[in-house]
Design a protein around this nucleic acid. Structure first.
Length: 791
RNA sequence: GGGACAGUGGCGGAACUGGUAUACGCGCACGACUUAAAAUCGUGUCUCGAAAGAGAUGAGGGUUCGAUUCCCUCUUGUCCCACCA
């Protein structure tokens, strides 16, 4: 027998599989006379950073185990791959090394394609999607224009997050809680700019509500719900006026109504309108319209203006992370009327009230709200402890607010999809007609960030614009957030070559929704939310067929370095998968990653070289089992038959639920047991090989062919099990006395309570324990245990 | 401050619907083979105890014949959100 040499067999089988194109999904649902059910397995496509790391293996090679089993089970399986190839790293490389971002990116893609193939993963390369390819981004632009037509994409002035290092604006999701940019680490500033937005807030309610129907892990749903932040409450108007005016009205004995135009009102949002009788003051945010000029007659307006200035200088982060200490200024000469009590209450301005949430103003109920209590204590404001409870809508209109804000998609950067908009000589935006798509990204630019988008310097782009639209017209110079590109890529996989449509309904009907989607937990409130929104918007436009894009979502964990820390070049603890493959082979690396921990949970698992070697040893044992094949081993032992069926069930169930670690464990147990036997039947050995194939396809394929088989084991039918035979005929019963295990005995699994009790009583240990005692009652669990209760 | 998830050997982790806690792998110890080492194979490996036995799944309580599993209180950790009215 040859020895196991993965260096020789891995490459050989990868080539064979590729030659026969076994990984390509068929769009016709019927194949081989029989109807094969379609199954769409999606993994988040990679950014082409240049080198494959262990994280990539974990993200792609492990789901391939699931894919391979499904395919063997007879599914027409779609497992596509592509590259999320726009984005900052390419541009930064361009600045640093003076290389063209396009060349840099395509070179990396070329390299990563090869590396991805080395995993033995069965991607359908025929549908590859590359987001920086004009044939892809023409549709990103087309979809943007569809959104624009329906008012879902709009230009607006906004106080935005500005990254001073990358010199670009960022979405809220890309700013970390400490106020630094997720990517560059820069301290984010606030800037008022005109930007392109997408109206995700229109879908806040549906994005939140529809989560209920999804078969997703609870934690992901909760995280999204939290981020969307729906709260039901009421809007209540408080009349506000200057104290002197009120006095005047009183002295002249005028009716309030007559002077109402001189009164103004402030709307507050509250989730507890029932507490209005306890509202003792009003607080408005420094950005509130009421403070823009002094029509009200605030007597300390200068002081208030000073406070507003100070608040504006702070970034949002500073404002909200300054600890617990709240600050505010009393608006002198002004008061509001509590509509419930009719009492005059003071009005304050304080920056703990946020301008963009609710109405930017609150009624304070210090007896009931911690923040209000704190503020009232500091500034000695009145507190009403025992107040009357009001009906929910007695004084206000029912409303719902959300924390979610519209998605800012403009980026003042080069390497992204050009926004397909041009401006007329008056500066008014116009969509670029679809016949001019793809609206190509120009190349005559300066990549160095200057604060103005690089496209501003392109003469070609300006010339192109003027040629098509006329003199004085100007192109949009911002590009789109790359999350726009990735919001619909899973639809392009279905129809990647279509020149007329972004994705035909006919193809979508074959595959959507995605049956299973595996990715990183960091995307919970970014990509996963964006793409759900995109899909819902497309649904309303009649461009897709379902309400939700992903039926099942799973977030995977991460692989840490051997020292338990994150892998980093700085720590010099990075595990290079190519080196590992050289050492132990593709199959051992794949199987080890499957074995490292449960894949369906977000854990962090440290790499262990010894663990990897242990898995290689396991594969060696499988290999050596060839020696034990014997024609005479046909008289299969009952225990072995039982173990085969039990293992088949275990592996099938565990791979289905992506608990690959316990599936590998079951395969190890089976292998260990077979190794103990004098001889092994070819039939049983082949079942083991088939079960092993998804994990370790190369070694399985090699042995399979050595055994004389001509077809690919990869395309063989997945072993089936007989449910009856997964239960052993004999079982070890546990005998407990008063709930404590005292002995065990072996008997037929099917025995009844009476028999079990008799057998238990015969045992020496039990006799000892029961000597001189009365049996009060027994509890019997069929096929498991008998518990004897005595005094 | 809010939310979600989790806490099991020296380590990664198992445990069906409440039914022998620690499967499988690593590590470690001893043994076989070897001049020797590596590799391989075998045996052992939660703690205390000579044994009988007792005690252990973050801590404490509860329900139950029986709890890693269900309930309550506390505690620690990870992740997400965070002055969201």
């Amino acid at each position: 027998m040859k020895s196991y040499d993965p260096g020789k067999i891995d490459n050989k089988w990868q080539k064979e599989w590729k030659k026969k194109r076994i990984h390509e999904a068929l769009d016709s649902a019927t194949t081989l006379k029989k109807t094969k059910p379609n199954f769409y397995m999606l993994v988040e496509f990679p950014y082409p950073s240049g080198d494959l790391h262990v994280g990539h293996w974990y993200a792609f090679a492990v789901p391939d185990i699931f894919v391979r089993m499904k395919r063997m089970q007879g599914y027409n399986l779609l497992f596509p791959i592509g590259f999320d190839s726009f984005g900052l790293p390419a541009e930064n490389a361009a600045i640093q090394n003076k290389v063209d971002p396009s060349k840099w990116t395509w070179k990396n893609i070329e390299r990563m394609r090869k590396q991805l193939c080395s995993m033995g993963a069965t991607f359908d390369w025929s549908r590859e999607v590359v987001t920086c390819d004009p044939e892809y981004y023409r549709w990103t632009q087309w979809l943007f224009l569809e959104f624009y037509k329906r008012g879902l994409a709009y230009r607006g002035n906004a106080l935005v997050n500005w990254d001073p290092i990358d010199k670009t604006v960022l979405a809220n999701e890309q700013v970390l809680p400490d106020g630094t940019a997720e990517r560059s680490g820069a301290r984010v500033e606030k800037k008022e700019l005109e930007q392109w937005f997408v109206k995700i807030t229109d879908y806040a309610d549906r994005l939140s509500f529809d989560l209920e129907s999804l078969d997703w892990p609870h934690s992901i749903k909760e995280a999204q719900k939290n981020w969307i932040g729906k709260s039901d409450g009421a809007e209540i108007s408080f009349q506000v006026s200057s104290v002197s005016l009120q006095k005047e009205i009183k002295s002249k004995n005028l009716k309030l109504k007559a002077e109402s135009r001189q009164l103004t009102s402030v709307k507050v949002f509250t989730t507890r309108p029932d507490t209005i009788f306890g509202a003792t003051y009003l607080v408005i945010s420094p950005e509130h319209k009421l403070l823009e000029n002094n029509e009200l007659g605030i007597t300390n307006y200068e002081e208030v203006k000073g406070y507003i200035q100070k608040a504006k200088l702070k970034t949002e982060i500073e404002r909200t992370s300054e600890g617990k200490e709240k600050t505010g200024v009393f608006l002198k000469g002004v008061s509001a009327t509590n509509p419930a009590t009719g009492n005059k209450i003071p009005v304050w301005v304080a920056d703990y009230v946020l301008p963009l949430y609710g109405t930017g103003a609150i009624m304070a109920v210090p007896a009931d709200d911690k923040r209000d209590e704190e503020f009232a204590k500091k500034y000695k404001l009145p507190v009403i402890k025992n107040y009357k409870s009001a009906g929910f809508t007695d004084f206000g209109k029912k409303t719902t607010t959300y924390k979610l804000r519209d998605w800012l998609i403009s980026r003042q950067r080069y390497w992204g999809v050009p926004i397909p908009i041009v401006y007329d000589p008056d500066g008014k935006p116009h969509p670029i007609p679809p016949k001019h798509l793809p609206w190509i990204l120009p190349t005559d630019v300066d990549f160095n960030p200057t604060g103005v988008a690089p496209l501003a310097k392109s003469k070609e782009l300006l010339k192109r614009t003027e040629k098509i639209f006329g003199k004085g017209w100007k192109p949009e110079i911002d590009t789109m957030d790359t999350f726009v590109d990735s919001s619909w890529y899973f639809l392009r996989y279905l129809d990647s070559k279509n020149k007329k449509e972004f994705s035909s309904i006919k193809k979508q009907k074959l595959w959507m929704p995605v049956d299973r989607y595996s990715g990183g937990s960091e995307h919970t409130n970014m990509h996963l939310l964006y793409s759900r929104f995109f899909y819902k918007a497309l649904y309303d436009l009649g461009l897709v067929t379902e309400k939700e894009p992903y039926r099942v979502r799973l977030n995977r964990g991460i692989i840490l370095a051997e020292d338990g820390r994150k892998m980093s070049k700085r720590w010099k603890n990075v595990v290079n998968p190519d080196e590992q493959v050289k050492k132990v082979g593709t199959d051992a690396v794949r199987t080890y990653l499957a074995f490292i921990g449960p894949y369906n949970e977000v854990g962090s698992y440290p790499w262990s070289t010894n663990g990897l070697i242990g898995v290689r040893r396991f594969l060696e044992r499988v290999w050596k089992l060839q020696e034990k094949i014997s024609e005479n081993a046909n008289e299969t032992k009952k225990e072995i038959e039982y173990l085969i069926h039990k293992t088949t069930k275990k592996v099938t169930d565990d791979v289905e639920s992506m608990k690959f670690n316990t599936a590998v464990s079951a395969l190890m147990i089976l292998t260990n047991e077979l190794t103990k036997e004098v001889s092994v039947s070819k039939e049983n050995y082949e079942i083991l090989l088939k079960l092993l194939t998804p994990f370790a396809p190369h070694i399985s394929e090699e042995i399979w062919h050595t055994l004389g088989n001509k077809n690919f084991i990869t395309m063989e039918k997945w072993p089936e099990y007989d449910k009856e035979k997964t239960k052993s005929e004999n079982t070890t019963f546990v005998v407990q006395i008063n709930g404590k295990t005292r002995a065990t005995f072996a008997a037929q699994t099917s025995i009844e309570e009476k028999v079990a009790l008799e057998l238990a009583k015969e045992l020496e240990e039990i006799k000892k324990w029961l000597a001189g005692k009365k049996v009060k009652k027994t509890i019997f669990v069929s096929g498991r245990l008998i518990n004897i209760i005595s005094d």
